[in-house]
């Protein structure tokens, strides 16, 4: 169990990156959703002990993470969004090096684990090649392999499928699902469908604050019967935005479409649809940004 209490961080330029975050995260895949600059990366890095917050506490399985970061690191697997690799070092050698740093000092056990992980991530054939020659997808798999060293209890992956082709993406998630049954796995991504499909719990973060927390299903259920859709060639989008709570608009060249949140039908041509997690996301953000817009809706309702 990962418990985060009152986590706050303010950067030197005055930006409040984390604003009193409170979260409890249990075993399973936990999705983290939010716009750029929401504080997702700050949050991940803080959890991964890469930076210190101004205030608050983090505890994992009884470990006070802020006071004893090394203890967490023994149980942590971290796959950052961007990383490079040393030149002229083979996959085996580099993974072995990271394994040493992880604390696998017994040479035999370490060798076994390294080879097993390389197999699991389909890199065994390339284990003697220089990692610097790997394609993007292979590198990511290497990243996952090192995140899985020494049976971590907490895994954090940040935008893990950026740059992977569809097949690699599916394979990647299959791997994660296998692993995540009995551990806490936090997945931060922009790909909303992935969270919808894979995560048992999630949070939406914006401007350093947790706006919503819950399972994707329950969050979608909250706005059931409130999402309306219209498509036509002659939609006056700007007009609609003034009148209703527009969640998102889409342009298909001449065709335009709009999604609106409303407790009753906004106007003719709108049909009720099943809310998707995307709708939940846009709605949540809208509500946090412009309370006046909601008022408008309330009035109309």
């Amino acid at each position: 169990m990962l418990t985060i209490k009152n986590l706050s961080k303010r950067y030197d330029n005055g930006v409040q990156a984390l604003n009193n975050i409170n979260l409890s995260i249990d075993k399973g895949m936990f999705g983290l959703l939010g716009p750029n600059g929401a504080g997702k990366s700050s949050f991940m890095r803080t959890l991964a002990t890469l930076q210190l917050p101004d205030s608050g506490s983090i505890s994992f399985n009884g470990i006070d993470v802020l006071a004893q970061p090394d203890q967490l690191k023994k149980l942590l697997g971290y796959l950052p969004q961007d990383f490079g690799v040393y030149p002229r070092v083979s996959a085996y050698e580099l993974l072995d090096y990271l394994a040493i740093m992880k604390g696998l000092s017994n040479a035999k056990a370490r060798k076994e684990q390294v080879l097993a992980l390389l197999q699991q991530t389909n890199l065994y054939e390339h284990r003697k090649n220089y990692v610097s020659t790997f394609s993007g997808g292979m590198r990511r798999r290497f990243g996952i392999a090192q995140a899985l060293l020494a049976d971590p209890k907490l895994i954090m992956v940040d935008e893990p499928t950026a740059g992977l082709d569809p097949e690699e993406r599916i394979r990647f998630y299959n791997l994660l699902s296998d692993v995540s049954e009995n551990i806490v796995l936090i997945l931060s991504t922009h790909i909303i469908e992935d969270i919808q499909e894979l995560c048992s719990d999630m949070a939406i973060i914006s401007r350093g604050q947790v706006l919503k927390k819950g399972s994707p299903k329950s969050l979608m259920h909250e706005i059931k019967d409130q999402v309306w859709f219209k498509q036509s060639k002659s939609l006056n989008l700007s007009q609609l935005e003034l009148q209703y709570n527009v969640l998102s608009t889409k342009n298909f060249g001449t065709n335009k479409a709009v999604y609106v949140q409303s407790k009753k039908q906004p106007e003719a041509g709108f049909e009720l649809i099943e809310p998707s997690l995307e709708d939940v996301y846009f709605n949540t953000l809208k509500m946090s940004n412009s309370p006046s817009a909601i008022l408008v809706n309330e009035e109309r309702a």
């Binding site: 991964a48 890469l50 942590l76 990383f83 040393y86 990271l98």
Partner: peptide
Amino acid sequence: YDFSSLVETKP
């Protein structure tokens, strides 16, 4: 080589 975050998260 942008490798720090892999190293710094190790105990």
